[in-house]
Amino acid sequence: MNVFLMYLGAFIVGGVLCSAGQILIDRTRLTPAKILVLFVTVGVILTLLGVYQNIVKVGGAGATVPLTGFGYTLAKGTFSDVDKYGLLGAFTGGIKAAAAGITAAIFFGYLISVAFSPKAKR
């Protein structure tokens, strides 16, 4: 695929997903925590419906970097483990696929919060 189109796809798909989040914030006063939960869950559902796979094809990182992509990773991993191990896979696949992300978030999160301190805002 043309490199320019690849970046354009990432920009537009990522931008649209973030805009959807912004509309929810401004119109419904949902808190950031609820937005994040909603996006992950929607990502899982869209992957189950076979829709998100197509969004990833168009958007690349534009679809995998937003939190819906985290849901996509979880669901995709679950399905591939269900294919391999049957029902047990529903319990093993998600975390396995998301292991890098979750572990990185905890590990870097710990290091950074030990090393840095919050600053007052004005």
Binding site: I25, R29, P32, P118, K119, A120, K121
Partner: peptide
């Protein structure tokens, strides 16, 4: 400001908007 944010709202470094 900082102690009130911490208790009633969000951590200072959380990237959120105020209405």
């Amino acid at each position: 400001f900082c102690s009130a944010e911490k208790q009633f709202r969000y951590p200072l470094e959380l990237g959120s908007q105020r209405p």
